[in-house]
Nucleic acid binder design. Structure first.
Lengths: 338, 338
DNA sequence: GTGAAAGCGCTAACAA
DNA sequence: TTGTTAGCGCTTTCAC
């Protein structure tokens, strides 16, 4: 790992009585090596406990073999799934994954820049890095944006606007709810913003309006619990609550009954993501299913492809806004199937 | 990022009319540079959009500025917190964090080895890497084990055995339960194994025994739900269920009522971790609080210290088994406060 | 204060 | 098939 006393290609070459090139060939699985020579070299490698330095290797061929991913935070099932997807793809390609959380960090720009200097490409979750820097980074190397749509950049996302519009329409059309409220619009979370916009559009299309501005508390279950308390103490419980994600919905689901508000009896609740708890909660959660892990994997794939292409000095990938389909999952919390 | 057309120290040196050494001094904040020269160099850097290569820098001073962390999986709140703790410390030290999940991976050894070759030190969660390799890696560079106790290695963990023993004792002494069962012993999860051992010890000490072997299903909420179904269909619901972690407990908590089993009325349930949902679930979950994020942070700190020490060629850190205190959190699911 | 030059560990032409 | 050699981009003595 660190420099100290590590043996190098030269040590192996000397010990095996061959040249450094041959050692390199062996460690790189170059077929142009006599079996006998290979064996000899491998023996020396074993004997001296040699492990090639990624640094030397990287410097020699201008590659880090490292993929970077920038997330707002590392907490919550959403980001865990995204990482998981990206990591599996990176792993298959023999690359490592380097992560960084921008929340709870003052110098986001510097941190992201630093990351970009140690990676072959970046997956950036929307809302973590400002537009200027984003374009700057994209000019600098392969980059794909996830969960946001940014002009001139490769983006992979779902249609949060349309999906939430559809979900809200379900509440309005099928259940006939008329007083609805949104929960969880986050600062700098473009996908939450898109969902909120879809929510409003569904209402507007029908000549309705939200009964009150969004309950803004963050995006996790704790925030959902806080929203529940705020809602109840305000005394005005609407007929339905549309949450920016499942975590918020779960927090509400867990807290409201204790406050004397039945779900979906007194208030319907819907979420977004279809996370692991959505089908376990009681009542089970009506939500939008989103293949998060697949999105993370796809993002990683695109970045790695771009990195490879870049080595061949061919054209850069055209900016593209890829929209992954989602699926409305009707369960109990909206009032259906209960 | 990749090699292509990036400007180098030499370009800057030429452009600014100075030597590469001076450029290096400027980028390394070496004070021995005339303000005038510095300004000139900075201007060139700005003009050419120069960013020093981490690879070149790393090779020159034998450092990766990268910390590695090896986890079983990337899913679930536990690992997210661990990563979060480690990442914050790494970030403060100007280092990036590289993660790798060993579940769903065939070539764990190779992957971990590869990671160790691109990092200055490793944080390894217990149960992910076999003992041989672990010692091999530790001989090779700074390494700390988390959530396990391995002879001759630096370990940071909590006393899962003692804590679960205490938790189980609460169930036995305060509530007088006599039929208990453990949920969630995982394959290759040393901390789950320790908790199970503590559970059994509490029983044995009182001349009791578990009513049946552990319900083994994994460690997440889905597994908890499956355990609930298995338990109910078996027809033998014990008085209390001790879960290997909160996620399992949450899964049970969510599922059992739907199967006609009241918690804690028909069966008490306790968990381990005190995760975000523990205080939100209904009933709220009695559990063992564990400062996971702090553990991740401390592990990162120890590794970074060791990496620094190693550079000074001083003595390696002595093997140490650091036990972080936990706290029993009594809530409703055990039957208290309900 | 600044420059010249020697590497850090590896790979990749090019020779042999 | 194997060896020689020139870098990859940066830091760092050691002179000046």
């Amino acid at each position: 790992m660190a420099r100290s006393s590590r043996s190098t290609v030269r040590d192996i070459a000397r010990h095996a009585g061959v040249s450094v090139a041959t050692v390199s060939r062996v460690t790189s699985d170059d077929p142009h090596v006599t079996p006998g020579t290979r064996t000899k070299v491998l023996a020396s490698i074993e004997a001296l406990g040699y492990r090639p330095s990624a640094l030397g290797r990287g410097l020699a061929n201008g590659r880090f073999s490292m993929l970077g991913i920038v997330l707002p935070g590392l907490g919550g099932p959403y980001f865990a799934e995204l990482i998981q997807g990206a990591e599996s793809v990176a792993g298959e390609a023999g690359m490592a994954l380097s992560v960084i959380g921008t929340h709870m960090r003052r110098d986001v720009g510097q941190a992201v820049r630093q990351l970009s200097e140690r990676t072959d490409g970046l997956v950036v979750v929307g809302g973590t890095v400002d537009g200027n820097l984003l374009h700057q980074l994209a000019a600098h190397g392969p980059l794909v944006v996830v969960a946001d749509s940014v002009p001139d950049l490769v983006c992979i996302r779902t249609d949060g606007h349309g999906a939430t519009r559809e979900l809200t329409a379900h509440l309005l059309e099928v259940h006939g709810y008329r007083t609805l409220r949104f929960v969880g619009l986050g600062r700098g979370s473009p996908d939450a913003a898109a969902r909120y916009a879809g929510f409003r559009e569904a209402l507007t299309e029908r000549g309705l309006a939200e009964v009150a501005p969004p309950l803004v508390q963050g995006m996790d279950s704790k925030a959902g619990a806080a929203a529940a308390r705020e809602l109840v103490s305000s005394g005005a419980v609407p007929q339905a609550l549309v949450c920016a994600n499942d975590e918020l919905a779960i927090g509400l689901l867990a807290t409201l009954p204790g406050l004397g508000v039945a779900v979906p009896g007194d208030v319907a609740i819907v979420g977004f993501d279809d996370n692991a708890l959505a089908s376990l909660a009681s009542p089970t959660l009506t939500t939008i299913h989103q293949p998060i892990q697949a999105i993370g994997a796809e993002a990683a794939r695109v970045v790695l492809d771009a990195a490879r292409r870049r080595e061949e000095v061919s054209a850069p990938p055209p900016p593209e806004d890829r929209v992954i389909p989602t699926r409305l999952v009707i369960r109990e919390s909206c009032g259906c199937l209960y």
